[in-house]
Amino acid sequence: NQSNSSSGDSEKITLKVATHTNQEHYSYKIGIEPWMDKVTELTDGKVEFEVYTNEQLGKAKDSYNLVKNKVADISFIVYAQDKMPLTDLPMLPNIYGSAYEGTRAYWDVSSDGGIMLEKAFLPNGIRPIFNFAVSPFTFGTVNEKIENLEDIEGMKLRTSGGLLDLTLNELQGTPISMPVTDARQALERGTIEGIMTSWLSIKPYQLEKPLNYIISNAPLNGWAAFYAINEEKYQSLPQDVKEAMKKASEETVINLAEKINDSEEKVKTSLKEEGIEIYPLEDEQVQKWEKELDPLVNEWISEMEKKGLPAQKVYDEFKKSVEKYKE
C-alpha cells in the first residue's frame, strides 16, 4: 500500500496515524480526528487514514522515532526533547499564561516560516501538522495550603520528571517521580503531600478526591505536544493534498486553542463545586516565584546556545507571539 504522488489524481492515498492515547483523549477528539475528517473532506475522499491508537505501534516515548522511521506517517509526539531540545521551550516555567496563548504561539513558530519549524523540526525530518498547549501546571495539595515559597520547602510533591523536577528543586520542594496512575492513592495515603499537575489531568486520574487546595495562578511550567508528519512523506504528497492539510491544520489549531481553554475553565468550575479551594497567590508572591524561576529559563537558553541552537531567538519569537494573543 505504498502511495505514489506523481501519478493521477484519482489514486487513493492511505496514511498511517499512530498515537499512544485512546480515542477519548482530547488530543484525539478535538485534534487528530477533526483534522483527518477535514483532510478527507477537502480531498473528496482521496486521502484516507489508518489509525493505530493505544500504543499499538509503539510506546509514547518512541512516538518521535515512529514517524521519523516511517513506521507510521503521522504520529502524536509528546516526547522528542533528546532529538529536538528546542521543543522544550514551552515546558519551561512562566513562558505563557494560558492554553490559548500557548497553543497559538507554539503554532506561530512551528508552521510555515516559523523559526522552530526551520531550526528544530525540519532538520530532523518531521513537520508538525498541529500542536496544542495546556495552561501552565499548578500545585494541588491535600492538607497544607501553599501560600508562599516557604510552604513548599521540603514538601513531597509528585511530578512527571524532567524539567518539572528542576522547577521543584529551584522552589526547594521534594520531587517524587511516580506514574500518574498511582498518584491518587499516594495522595490519599500521604506518600506525597501534593502534586504538580496540569488542570486537564486532575479529573481523568480522580485527583479531585484527595486534593483540597489548588493554586489558580502559579507561574509554573507549561506543557505542549504536537502531531507530526514525516517530511519526506509530506513532500511526496500532491500539491492539493498539502493545501488541504494546511487548511485543516489552521482550523484544528484555533479550535484546540479555544476548546482546551474552555475545558480548563469547566474543570475549575466543577472542582470548585466539589468543594476544592481554588485560590490565587498574592501578586507579590507570584513575582517572587518568577524571580526564583527565571534563572532556569536563562540557563536553558545559554545551554542551548552552547550547543549551537538559536534558543534566544526562538524564545524571543515565542514571547512576541504570546503577547499578541494575550487578551
Binding site: G58, N65, K70, V71
Partner: peptide, 17 residues
C-alpha cells in the same frame, strides 16, 4: 506488511524500549 521502513523502525525502538 509494512516494508523495510517498518522492519528497521520497529527493530530500532522495540528492543531498547
Amino acid at each position: 506488511a509494512g516494508g523495510v521502513d517498518s522492519l528497521l523502525g520497529i527493530f530500532q525502538t522495540a528492543p531498547y524500549s
